[in-house]
């Protein structure tokens, strides 16, 4: 039995200065332990939804909301962001906005949230050491956060959220500054966190990655969830193009070289599936070669 950890019920939101609503009647349930991806064009409401999940909306941003969001049983409108942050952590789209920059070193930056929680000093040091190893930022601990490169800031920003051990981690395009291998390493870490039971809500434009990792995918457009389901249900939907989203490249290449109905599955969504399927096609066709 899985329990619902996040419940978004008919939630709408409009920012104070804007005439258009940013979220329109959003309804969404996330089960404990699920890996959820949110995709869609820029301006479709993905980041606004992230802010709403962690309570920055309506507690911090000024605007008008309708409907209700509960996270682990708590109504986001009636508890403080601080209290919610014990359960749900957000990694911002712009990693430069994540750090407090009130600390002289990366280690102090990582201690910031722990300090607010009243974590004992000794425990703090061991947690910082552990997270630094995990995120490969050991060598940065004594550096001033202002000296870091974009990719380094991104690793520290992620570390500062993960170190608080939230039940739910919300990631708003959390690898944009990283090189391809670094990006894969971070995703491996996120995947392991998810396997250890942490619920993940991830916003990303990399469809290959979404197809590889997510249990559920939701497509947003103009503030509404317009499509949702497993990666297969979403990426095979004929409606997808209407929402300015392309399926993973693996889907398009396999779909185009394999005859429809030729096999049980005539497409692939991930790299390993695509390679296996196409190898099969090359191999089988050779077997079917007519005898001369």
């Amino acid at each position: 039995m899985t329990s619902t950890l996040i419940q978004v019920s008919h939630f709408s939101y409009r920012y104070n200065q804007e005439s258009e609503v940013a979220l329109k009647n959003v309804h969404l349930e996330v089960a404990a332990g699920e890996f959820v991806a949110m995709i869609g064009a820029n301006g479709s409401g993905k980041s606004t939804l992230c802010n709403a999940l962690v309570g920055l909306i309506p507690n911090y941003f000024v605007g008008y909301s309708e409907g209700r969001i509960t996270v682990d049983g708590k109504d986001t409108a009636s508890v403080s962001v601080g209290e919610l942050s014990q359960t749900i952590g957000l990694v911002f789209q712009n990693p430069f906005n994540q750090l407090s920059y009130t600390a002289d070193t990366v280690a102090e930056e990582l201690a910031y949230g722990l300090g607010n929680r009243g974590v004992p000093r000794d425990e703090m040091f061991s947690k910082i050491k552990k997270i630094a190893e995990l995120m490969q930022i050991d060598e940065l601990l004594d550096k001033n956060p202002l000296e870091l490169s974009g990719g380094q800031v991104q690793r520290v920003a992620l570390a500062s959220a993960i170190i608080l051990e939230p039940k739910i981690l919300v990631l708003d395009e959390c690898t944009t500054q990283l090189d391809p291998i670094g990006s894969e390493q971070i995703m491996d870490i996120i995947k392991k966190l998810n396997e250890s039971g942490i619920t993940i809500v991830m916003v990303d434009h990399d469809m290959e990655r979404v197809a590889e990792l997510a249990d559920k995918v939701y497509v947003l457009q103009h503030g509404s969830i317009v499509l949702g389901g497993t990666p297969e249900e979403v990426f095979c939907s004929p409606q997808l193009a209407e929402f300015s989203v392309s399926p993973p490249d693996y889907y398009e290449i396999t779909k185009n070289v394999i005859q429809p109905g030729y096999r049980e599955k005539d497409f692939a969504l991930t790299e390993s599936q695509a390679i296996a399927l196409l190898q099969e096609v090359l191999y089988e066709d050779r077997n079917q070669e007519p005898q001369a």
């Binding site: 391809p180 291998i181 490249d249 693996y250 290449i253 070289v257 790299e271 390679i275 196409l278």
Partner: peptide
């Protein structure tokens, strides 16, 4: 720390002779 893009990687894994960058190239080479 760089890996080729998805389509190129699939082409390389299958041992296709010519390198593919676009879907059209891949389909042609395959």
């Amino acid at each position: 720390y760089v890996t080729p893009p998805p389509i190129t990687r699939v082409g390389q894994a299958l041992g296709l002779k010519d390198i593919s960058f676009s879907k059209e190239e891949f389909i042609d080479h395959f």
